[in-house]
Design a binder for these strands. Sequence first.
DNA 1: GATGAATGAGCGTTCATTCAT
DNA 2: GATGAATGAACGCTCATTCAT
Lengths: 195, 195, 195, 195
Amino acid sequence: MPPSTIKSEALSLFARQGYEGTALSEIASAVGIKTPSLYAHIESKEALYLELFEDLVQEHVEHIRAYMQTSEQASVEERLFQIIQESCHNYTLSEEKITFVKRSLLFPPASLQKQLQERFMEAEKSLTELLHNLFEKGIKSGIIKHTKTEDLIASYFCLMDGAFIQMLYYGAEVFGTRLPAIWKMYWSGLTMEQN
Amino acid sequence: MPPSTIKSEALSLFARQGYEGTALSEIASAVGIKTPSLYAHIESKEALYLELFEDLVQEHVEHIRAYMQTSEQASVEERLFQIIQESCHNYTLSEEKITFVKRSLLFPPASLQKQLQERFMEAEKSLTELLHNLFEKGIKSGIIKHTKTEDLIASYFCLMDGAFIQMLYYGAEVFGTRLPAIWKMYWSGLTMEQN
Amino acid sequence: MPPSTIKSEALSLFARQGYEGTALSEIASAVGIKTPSLYAHIESKEALYLELFEDLVQEHVEHIRAYMQTSEQASVEERLFQIIQESCHNYTLSEEKITFVKRSLLFPPASLQKQLQERFMEAEKSLTELLHNLFEKGIKSGIIKHTKTEDLIASYFCLMDGAFIQMLYYGAEVFGTRLPAIWKMYWSGLTMEQN
Amino acid sequence: MPPSTIKSEALSLFARQGYEGTALSEIASAVGIKTPSLYAHIESKEALYLELFEDLVQEHVEHIRAYMQTSEQASVEERLFQIIQESCHNYTLSEEKITFVKRSLLFPPASLQKQLQERFMEAEKSLTELLHNLFEKGIKSGIIKHTKTEDLIASYFCLMDGAFIQMLYYGAEVFGTRLPAIWKMYWSGLTMEQN
DNA sequence: GATGAATGAGCGTTCATTCAT
DNA sequence: GATGAATGAACGCTCATTCAT
């Protein structure tokens, strides 16, 4: 009955089945009400989806930002690694959440494409900025090879997205054991020879 | 009228809009016939989708296999790089094709999930084998650091999937300029210090 | 909050949009309350509509009757003309009111047709009686040609309804200038040659 | 099964119950098919309604125009009287048809108001022109009192609309006997004293 | 091989109404 | 007196599919 229940069930279904693949009737029955009753809590299917998306993007950004603050004395490597791990799967930002967001960006329902992209833009900007600073710090401290930060960020996003797909495809468990190995290789490509 | 037209239009629409997001009527009108006429050429929407998927997977595997044969005197790096590039976007295996396949694997329509995964398994096996040999060759020849091939392959797939997403998200053009930079970093993480 | 507000807003909406074209939610939001709150004041949508109809019919009859009493020394022509003008549009019986009533009679919602007609019958009887007397007076005083009062009344109603439609269609303003001209012709058809 | 059946049933239902008061399911069941089957023949409910409206307006205008041509040697009075009779109720232009049109103009569904009015405009122009000529002819031949044709037309439309309402309200039968009496009075108001 | 007509299933949504609070 | 939550009924409409032609 609380509207958060609707959102939570909708999140779960949208993440697994996508926008078009999920009927409001499924969400309603997951919540335990009849379909028209949903409309006491949501404005429309589209609005529900967009609201969820916004919530999750905001939550994600805030989560990363919070991590950045509490991890100021951690090493650059540690922080970069953690951000990927947190982004793909962690306690507060469940697998479903990140799946919902990524799905929305990669294969958005035609009718929502523009709005989804718009709403994601500033989040992406924030994250890019954060990473930019981190990489610059790594370079200045001599840990990371002198490289265009633009390329560093591109490769980092590439790793991050690849990692997400691995998780999606092989499951969170396999992923948990593989990510560190993958990261080691990636990181060793960025750093100076002594690594 | 040729059934290949149907497949080609269906591929394009499915890739962009997904299974649930694409109506048979859209495919029909793209082909220039009425919806029921489709059934003279296809068995059902599901069958069309599965057939397309199988075609593409097979085509992909054969394409990679063919490349492996024609590139036997190229370097390991060159070959590994080319495989990613070919996988994400190239002449014969168009962007749409790879998008269709990836989408089918990452976010399959619920009713087809099992069949799609099954049909992909052997293709994955083939590719993994190919890569396994390549990496072993790289290790034996002293170019690639001594590492568990399992991890190498995992990281390679990770890069490949990440690269695909980058292409999907930023477009083939941006991707074309970024991939080399990303690859350089990745490869430098796998190889010995002198690189 | 006063029930009269509900009635007044409902009148306005019903007149413009009809019974089926007006949702209770529209009425509620016009009043400034939520839809279920309406049920503290009305029994049902049907009841509200019927009540409104009854009110308006009664008001109309009383209005005409009152005019008849205050206009006893006016000429027959003056009185017949005024009745039409008052019926179509005037201060107390606004345009919306007459529109609501006419609409209800001409194109009643199927479920209310019988009740609406029933409730209008006695009003019609009253008016017919009034007119009957007026016309007889006109005939007896030698102003109106000797004619079957039945036909006189029929033609008068015809003019009245036609006038209403003109007002509805061309607006009250145009109507105000046209009615006198129309009346002059009509009246000249009823009266003796010297007019 | 012929699409004309759909239009004919729809006309009948729309005329009696209005746009909002008529469900597509009613039309379908009147035709003898299931609701979705309608969409093999119509584009939407709105489109069906508009098409009907256009058909009827055009038919009406053509009907009147045809009458004008075949009645050139009839008297002005005869012709003006016939036009009203034909407009309200006759063989080819059934009661339902005129009811549909009038209803559409007097109490249009909010969503179609503009389009209906637009599409009616030229028809109105045509008719006005026709009447204009007729009245001028009547005046020139000395039958009709010298009056502004504008006012004549206004009064004529008023009579016509009033007549229509009488027919709607009291039924075609009663109407048939009353119209001549009404007409006589109206006409006598327009003409010279010897009438 | 193509189509018009039809259909069962289902979808997102609105509406009048009820009821506990 | 007002409301949030819920609901059955219905609505306009889409879709994959069938079938006679």
